[in-house]
Simulated assay, not measured.
Amino acid sequence: MLDNLAAFFSSGSNIVFFVFALFAIGGAIFMISFTKVVHMVVAIASSFISLAGLYVLLNAEFLAFVQVLVYAGAISILMIFGIMMTQHKGEEEEPKRMAHQVLLVLGTLGLFGIIFYAVQSVEFPTSDVEPVADNTLEIGKLLFNQYVIPFELVSVLLTVAFIGAIVLAKREED
Results as ranks from 00 to 15, higher is better:
78 L>D: 09
80 I>S: 02
103 L>F: 09
44 I>A: 07
137 L>W: 12
167 V>G: 04
93 E>D: 15
151 F>A: 09
23 F>W: 11
64 A>E: 05
66 V>E: 06
124 F>G: 07
11 S>K: 13
116 F>S: 04
52 A>H: 02
92 E>Y: 02
151 F>G: 08
163 I>M: 06
5 L>V: 10
18 F>R: 06
116 F>H: 00
102 V>N: 06
56 V>C: 09
167 V>N: 03
161 A>I: 09
114 I>C: 08
20 F>A: 03
64 A>F: 00
59 N>M: 11
57 L>T: 05
60 A>N: 14
62 F>H: 04
170 K>L: 10
148 V>Y: 15
27 G>L: 08
28 A>D: 01
139 I>A: 15
167 V>E: 00
102 V>D: 06
47 S>T: 05
172 E>T: 12
169 A>N: 14
106 L>M: 07
143 L>R: 15
137 L>Y: 09
146 Q>Y: 10
3 D>E: 15
8 F>L: 13
107 G>M: 09
65 F>P: 04
88 H>I: 08
76 S>V: 03
156 V>M: 14
73 G>T: 00
58 L>A: 15
49 I>C: 06
16 V>D: 07
110 G>W: 01
19 V>T: 05
2 L>H: 10
11 S>Q: 13
146 Q>D: 04
17 F>M: 11
160 V>G: 04
126 T>A: 13
106 L>N: 04
145 N>T: 13
151 F>D: 05
173 E>L: 15
167 V>L: 12
102 V>T: 05
152 E>T: 01
172 E>G: 15
168 L>D: 04
63 L>G: 13
2 L>M: 12
141 K>I: 12
91 E>I: 10
98 M>S: 10
13 S>Y: 10
124 F>N: 10
84 M>V: 12
34 F>P: 01
37 V>I: 14
68 V>L: 15
106 L>K: 03
41 V>R: 07
169 A>M: 14
159 T>R: 06
150 P>C: 01
40 M>Y: 04
88 H>E: 11
116 F>I: 00
